[in-house]
Amino acid sequence: MARPIIELKNLSKIFATSEGELAALNGVDAQIYSGEIFGIIGMSGAGKSTLVRCINFLEKPTGGTVIFDGQDLSKLSQKELGRVRQSMGMIFQQFNLLMQRSVLSNVCFPLEIANVPKKDAVKRAYELLEIVGLADKAKAYPSQLSGGQKQRVAIARALATNPKVLLCDEATSALDPSTTASILSLLKEINKKFGITIVVITHEMSVIEEICNRVAIIDEGLIAEIGDVEEIFAKPKSKAAKKLVFPESKYIEQFVGEKCCRIIFDGRSSFEPVIANMILECKEAVNIMFADTKDIDGKAFGQIVIQLPDDERAAAKIMNYLTSKGLTVEEVLQND
């Protein structure tokens, strides 16, 4: 995880629309390392699609640079760009398969573009369909497949030319939760097995949790926060990150002044019933005002807001207990 395969430097994109200029990206800086699964998350309209389309130059940035594998993409001719794109696969929310071609022929398509002889292409296509578990559907047409199967074909197709990077723009957003899980585990497997760097664009926190190593939070065309997924989940700093990690945090603000405290689970403690143990130990009742915790790889992440007893001593006892368990405890303050 040392070498950046994609470097974005001060990337900006301004669209000229009929209502004037629209800045979709306002100077994005990011490095994506070889072999990692990198997430880009943000609300709808934040500029995620524009960003990912700038990475393979489907959209020409209006400012800044994209460096892929050491090459500045803006310096390439159209033909060279075509070749570079063959080392960047891409999958989409709507799958975008060729509806008049069979599954096999869809997977062969990028190989045709890359001038691979037909026989080799067919052989490679069968290998890929095997990997995504659809070898038996080679002769079927996309319209005969389910959404999850279509995305698998799209993944096979995107991998055909042995790309170094796989760009996924909301690849699971059109799928139901269990299909989403199976596609995500396929992506994870591909990342592990072939060492392909994966860039995952999504508006769903759960997708990031599930497969990403690092994440960038994008808001209004800017990276609000970037870092390890665990870190950002535990201690979101920016407003955009807080909104994504604690979507209901507005609700918490109304507890202010009622002697509430927030217990933060930052992954250092294991996923055990802390509150239940605390009540048993301290023999004091508390009110749980809000709880949003997640179990990631057996570690607890998230927050619980509890209302402390009015008795000062009892409250102190509880605070002491929690701190002794290695948890971060803070009083809920205004504007938090």
């Binding site: 075509g82 989409f92 975008n96 398969l97 509806m99 398509f109 573009i113 799209a154 030319t161």
Partner: peptide, 15 residues
């Protein structure tokens, strides 16, 4: 013809 399909082809480097 679906714009998305054309975009997919462009992403594969098709002229």
């Amino acid at each position: 013809v679906d714009k998305g399909v054309i975009e997919a082809a462009q992403s594969m480097g098709a002229s």
